[in-house]
Each structure stands twice: as structure tokens, then as C-alpha cells.
Write a protein that binds this DNA or RNA. Sequence first.
DNA 1: CTGGTCCCGTCATACGTATCACTTCGGACG
DNA 2: CGTCCGAAGTGATACGTATGACGGGACCAG
Lengths: 331, 331
Amino acid sequence: MSIRPTSRDVAQAAGVSQSTVSLVLAGKWTGRVSPATAEAVRAAAEQLGYRPNLAARNLRLGSTRTVLLVVPTLSSPFFGAVYTGAARVAAAHGFGIVVYPWPDGVGPADSPFAAPHDAIDGVLASSMAVESLGEFAGTPAVMLDSDPAGGAPTVNFDVAGGMRALVGHLAGLGHRRFGHLAAAVDEWTFRDRGAALAEAVAALPDGRLVRAETAIDVPAARVAARDLLAGARPTALLCDDDQIAAGAYKAARGLGLEVPGDLSVTGFDDVLLAEALEPELTTVRLPAEALGAHGMTALLDLLGGGRPRSRSLAGELMARGSTAPPAGAAP
Amino acid sequence: MSIRPTSRDVAQAAGVSQSTVSLVLAGKWTGRVSPATAEAVRAAAEQLGYRPNLAARNLRLGSTRTVLLVVPTLSSPFFGAVYTGAARVAAAHGFGIVVYPWPDGVGPADSPFAAPHDAIDGVLASSMAVESLGEFAGTPAVMLDSDPAGGAPTVNFDVAGGMRALVGHLAGLGHRRFGHLAAAVDEWTFRDRGAALAEAVAALPDGRLVRAETAIDVPAARVAARDLLAGARPTALLCDDDQIAAGAYKAARGLGLEVPGDLSVTGFDDVLLAEALEPELTTVRLPAEALGAHGMTALLDLLGGGRPRSRSLAGELMARGSTAPPAGAAP
DNA sequence: CTGGTCCCGTCATACGTATCACTTCGGACG
DNA sequence: CGTCCGAAGTGATACGTATGACGGGACCAG
């Protein structure tokens, strides 16, 4: 038979009523159905290849056991990892995930993607302001990598700690004059990175810091880095992103500066780029999969009526070949 | 009122029956409902913020207007682009997309992800063998970037043409001794690349080709490239992937070879890596978004009862700084 | 005045599931 | 012996939508 079997077909095959099938398959039969009957039902279901119709179940239950993951883009491995972590936890709880790539600043009406507004129980949104979620107001939401002051429960990276680790690493090598190639993106994570960096440098005796902004792509970063290096002469350049660091490499080489001999460079994020560059990039690895996993855990808690606490995940300093003592330092 | 309005609420507000609301909102009212009434219904729906319940609609229609996109991983920008292209076309036709990351070789039971087997109308699968879809047998499917001999309609890249373009470019520069760093992955696209490369080199007078395999990651490619370069001495090294090319860069530098002075290197795919490397990588850009878009178009055609033709999308040669005439060639 | 045709809508129903209220039946208990 | 109770299961219903089968005027022709 080519048509899909329903619970009624299973009932008929097992010689019981449809309600019994439903009870058994939902696992709520203890004390209501005899073990023998339950087994018979399961056998019939198995034999017919029965799979419950999700649409009917959702209609009946008023819940879809599906969560929407809102990300700015899927063209970055980072969000792929977030998805993976979230989906793993979701699947373990019988939830599905639908991805909704929502470029920041794009109105929902302009979006080329179909948002299944109602077919979801909750929202997991990464790297955006909670106000952007206006469209989903009222839906239980957990924010990832976003401003914790937004009101919603948040799971974040400790980017401030990451920045402090980088500055500590560089200061330990003898650096005092720092440059910051900041991402020209108004997101919490970058604001936090900038503030932490400024603070950490200010805490150093003789610490100095110059700052420039750039878009997150290689050519733009190259130009910004060249301009910055042409003015002040930092011995270490901290970049908000690995792609920016790639641009900095090019600018340095263009100016005849050796990395790390004449200029130390650091990135942030440790995407696949960090190991491909030469020299390999010192950066901070952010546990993106864990971010997704913890976020989904918090969301499930929220859906279950809990009040999940916001939390912060530490990054890991990956010290590699792009950092060294500044030229002229004692060995 | 906080509860979601149903079509019945709209009917009451507009002073008509529920069926009328359904007819109007489905756009099937011509000749059945007067323009004035239709307008009133639309106004009431708008005013109440009515959105049809998808679960109910799906239950009634027996179709979900949702398609499953099966990809090996989301940790690559490539599949993000495929998704984007597919989702754009889908949304324009009122379809949604659910992503199912299915690492090749992993059985469905082992998969950490929840496959919504029945909640879908069709499958779009990228970069895998059609046999892998066993789980979804019987569902209308279109394969992307996969073996066209599989039986299902296919949308592919003309990787053979891309390889020929690379060889032509290098031959034009004067190269005759080629190396191929092949991806050790048993997928159609890599088999096809290898075959096309061998053929193109064989067609050259004096053309010679050595070949080695490697996993698609930077450290592995570095080792493989070093071993290959230590034996034969090709003047041009064609890599199956940009990440492999990054490893080749490192190996070359480790052996004291300058790129492109002593060794020309090419990649494949033009992910964000190509522009970040130094020198920038000559590679073939594959239109991943177009792949997704054409695939979805074919799938919609298939779902509509059509018989979509398989087709092939040309890549674009991106000649950049990693290729030059071989050492000792006439200028 | 009757019968036929449109036009504009409404009624009723089915999709497949989960669950509440109810029945049946054998035994335990007073 | 009558009553109550738990075990084991069934019947009926509702979720919200889409749609085929009807209905009731209005208008026109005969």
C-alpha cells in the first residue's frame, strides 16, 4: 500500500481502537493498557511503518515542537556551528529547528525568506539586537551573542575575557603600543570587545592604543590597516575578526613590515582562516557549537516554564605564529 | 486579546461565514464572492492580524509546502549559499525550507538531527550519492552537485569545464608539468574533476601529470603537498579545493619555493579563503547560490508534475596572483 | 405567474491526532 | 449478596482549515 498508514490503520491491525494506539505510542499507557496490548500495538505500528502525521499532531496539541533559529547569514561557518550545536540538543528533546537567515536591518517584508511565524514554539536568535525580533514579539526567545541588557535570556561569549587574554599575551611579550582594527558593525560583541581592549590597555603602564574601523572583509581591512599603520606605529595590531587580520597581513607586507617580526597581529573567532594564513594567526577560539547547545537548552527550559539564567562562555586563546616580541625588545 | 485569531474570528468580525473567509484568503473567490465582501474580509483579517494556522492547513491539504534541504554540513559557506539561493526561490512560491545536515556515511539512526520525514513535500540534496537518500525514498527529489547517473534530476556545476579552463590558463602561461592535489573524498564532483584534468593534460603535447590525494583540511594538504613536491617537480599544482591550496602554499614555502615564481598554484570553489591568501589564489568560482536556486526551481517543477531536465552550471575562472609563467620560461 | 439561471454565499464535512469522560468486567470487601 | 473499585479499553470530540454540495434571492424569458 502506497498511502501512508494512519493511527486508525494501526488500530485495526492490532485489533484495538484508535485511542489506544495513541495512548500507547505516546507512552502514556501505564495503568491504562495492558502490557500485552501495548506490545501488540507497537508491533502493528512497526510492521505497517506507521509514522504519526505531524500536521495533525501539531493541530491537536497547538505546539509544533519546532524552534526558529534566526541568524544574520549562513555564509559563515560560525553560524553553521551554532546551528549544529542547537540542533543536537533540540533533537535529543524531540524538537526540530528551522533556520531563518535574517540580515540585520532588512525588514521582514523585504526578506526573501519565508518566516514561519506561527509554526514555531520559540526563537533562538544569534548576533542581533533583541529589538530586531519585533516580528516575533510574544514568542519565547533566547538571544545568543547579543546584548545581555536586552531583557531576554542570553548566552554569550566572554569576549571581554578573550580580549584581556590577547592583551595579556601581547603585554607579556613586551608590547605597549597597540592598534585596534575594529569591525564597523554596531553589535554588542564588537562594542564589548572595544571596551575591554581599551580598558586592558589603559591598565598597562605606558599602554597606548590607536583605533580604526573597517568592514569585515579582506580588501576593506587592508585599506584600513594601511591607513592606521601609516599614522601611528603600533607594535601589535588586534583585529576584531580573522578576516580583518587577513587584510592586516596584506597591508603590513605592502609596507614592508614582517609579521610577526615587525608587527604582531591577532584575530578573533578562529574560523578556518586562522590556520590557513601565514604565519598562522594568534586568535581567540569561540565555542560556537557550545553556544548553540547552551542556547537551545535555555530555550527548552524557557518553554518548559523555567526562568533560565543568562550565561557567558569563555573563549580560548590560540597562541600561534603571528605574535612575537616587538622589534628591539630584550630576548 | 492574546490568543491567535482564527478564520472564524475573522468571519465574525466581517459578518460572513468561515468558508467565505477561507475562499477569499485563498484567492479563489472570483465568481463566488462579491468584491465588496472580499474587501471586508481582507480588512477584518488585516485588522485582527490574522495568520492562517499552518498545521491545520497542512492537515487539510495533505501537503506542507515545505522542502527538505539535505547537505553534508553547514560548517562551510558553500552550503550556506546553496541554502540562500534555494530559499529565495522557495519563498517566492510560498514554500519553506528545512535544513537537514546529514554527514555522508552517517546512518539516519546515528544522526543527531531530527529528520522531519513526513512533514515535507520534497527533497533537495546536495553533494551526495542518491543512494544515501534511502530514508527518503519515494519523496520527489532533486540532486545538486551529484552524480547525474543517479537517476534523479540533477543540477550540477560544470567542474570539468572549470578544470579545462584552469589547465588552459596554465598551459597558456607555458606550463607542461602538472600536479594534482586531489580531495580524498568519493564524490562525483571530485571524480569528475580528476578525470577532466587528466584528459586535458593528456591532450597537451608534452603534458605530464602527477597526482596525490589528501583530506580537505590545511594541515593534511600541507603534508600531502610536501610529499608530492619532494618527488616529482611540477611547475603548476592544481588543488581540488581552496583549503588544499592553502596547505600547498605552506608546503611550497617550507621547501623554499616561491608562489607563483617557482610554483603556480590553483584552487577550486572560491570561498572566502581565496582572497585572504597571499598571493591571492587563482581559482574557479562556483555559483553556489545559483545552484540552490536552479535546484529549487527544478524541484518545484517536479512537484507540479513536470519532468525537469538535468542541467549544468558553468564556473568562472578567477585568474589572480598565484599563477605565473614557469621559472625559466621566455617572458 | 412559473421556471430557469446567475450570483453570492453558507453548511457540513474531513483531514489525523490526543485526551476527557465513560463503559464494561472481574474481583474484593463489608 | 450488594456495592464499590481498579484495570483495561472505547467513544466522542475538538483543534482550524479548505472545499464540494447545497440554498435563497433577483432577474429575465416565456
